[in-house]
Design a protein around this nucleic acid. Sequence first.
DNA 1: CATGTTTTGACAGTAGCTGTCATTTACTAG
DNA 2: CTAGTAAATGACAGCTACTGTCAAAACATG
Lengths: 210, 210
Amino acid sequence: MTTDASAGLRERKKAKTRAAIRDAAMRMFVEQGYAATTVEQIAEAAEVSPSTFFRYFPTKEDVVLTDDYDPLVVAAIRAQPPSTPVIEAVLLSMRQVFERLTEDEWASERRRQRLFREVPELQARQLQQTVAAIDLLAEVIAERLGVAAEDDEARSLAGALVGVALTFLKPGNTNGFQVEDFDRITRALISLRGHLEPLTRLSGDPAGQA
Amino acid sequence: MTTDASAGLRERKKAKTRAAIRDAAMRMFVEQGYAATTVEQIAEAAEVSPSTFFRYFPTKEDVVLTDDYDPLVVAAIRAQPPSTPVIEAVLLSMRQVFERLTEDEWASERRRQRLFREVPELQARQLQQTVAAIDLLAEVIAERLGVAAEDDEARSLAGALVGVALTFLKPGNTNGFQVEDFDRITRALISLRGHLEPLTRLSGDPAGQA
DNA sequence: CATGTTTTGACAGTAGCTGTCATTTACTAG
DNA sequence: CTAGTAAATGACAGCTACTGTCAAAACATG
C-alpha cells in the first residue's frame, strides 16, 4: 500500500511527494469540494509546482482513483483451498481482504467512496475501473475452473458477481462495503439461483413485431 | 428516436440543429478522431456558434452518449406475458428491441460502440449510464416479482444480468451486441446456475489471517 | 404590426492539461 | 571530495473544454 524499500533518497522523496499531494488533495476535496479545489491550490498546499502535480498524477481525477485492492483479492482467491466452490471462494476472499483493513484505511476508504458518490466524473471512472476488474476476476476464476481465461463461463460468472456487488454500492451506503453486506449478497445469489431454474437453451425465439 | 411533432417552426428548427451538430460531430470523430476534433470545428461544420453547441450538448462527450434504448427495453419487458419467467422476459425483450433496429440504426450504433471502445473517457461515461440502467431494470423486475423496487432480490438480479451482458461487450466485438450473443448469454447463465448450486447461507465465516 | 419570449452569437474568463527548456538535485566514478 | 551524468523540478507559453453575461436576432402571439 505504501512505500516498502527506501532504496535511495530519490525514491523516498518521490514517495513522500506523492503522499503529500494525495493527502493535501483529499483534505481539500473534503473541506471545499472537488470542483472548487483547483490543481494549483493542491500544488501549493503540497509545496510543489502545478507541473509537478501532473507528473505524479496524469489528471486531477487520478488523485482519488488510486486503489490497490484488486491484487489483494486476487491473491486471497488463489489462497483458497481448491475444494472450495468458486463463488464461495470469491466471496470469502473479498470478505477477508476487507476485514483486514485498519481503521485508518476504512476511514480514507469511506472518504473516497463518498467522493465517488458525489462527483459524477469520479463515479464514471471508478465504474470503469470496477468493470476492468472483471477481467482480472475472470482470469482467477478461469484458473480455478480449469478453462481458458476468455471462456464465457468464467467471464460471465465474474461479470455476474461484480454486477451483483455493484448493486450494493449504490444505496446511500454510508460506509461503502460493510461486512454484513456479504450475507446479503449470499442471500441475493441464492434467490438468483431460483430465477435461473426455468432457463432452457431456447429462451430467445425471435418474436416478430409488437 | 427522432422528431415526432412538428409543433412549431421553433421546435422543428431545434431538432434540426441538434441533428446537424450530432451528425457533423460523429462524422468528424470517425474521420479525424475524437480528441483531434474540437468543439469549435464541430460548431463550424454544423453552422452554429460554439455557444450554441454547448446549449444543445452540455459536454463534447454527450454528443456521443445519447442513447434511447433503455425505455424501449423496459416497455418490451412490460409487454411480456406474466407467465414468462423474469430472466427469459428480460433476454427476450432485449433481443426484440435489437432485432427491430434498421440497418442505418445498426450502422450508427456500431460507430458509437467503436468510439466507446477507443476513447476511455467515453467508455467511462457509457459504463456509468449502463450501471444507472440497472436501477431501471430493477424496477421492472421488481414489478414482475411483486416486490419493492429496493428489494435486494430484484436489484441484484438486475445487477447480475447487466454484469453478464457487460462481459459480452468487451471482446473486440466488432459489431457490439450481436443477435447470436443472446444464445451465448443464455448458455452462460445456465452454467452460472451450476456454480450457484453449492451456495448455502453461511459461506462467509471469518477466517483469520492467511 | 407590435409586443413579449426564446434562441443565438460574441466575448471574456477560468481551469485542466500539454510541451518545452533551463535549473536544480540526487546518483556514480574516479 | 569532485566532476560528470541522469533525473526531477519549476516557469512559461499555449490549447481547449466549458461558464457566464449581454445585446441582437428570430420566432410567437394578440
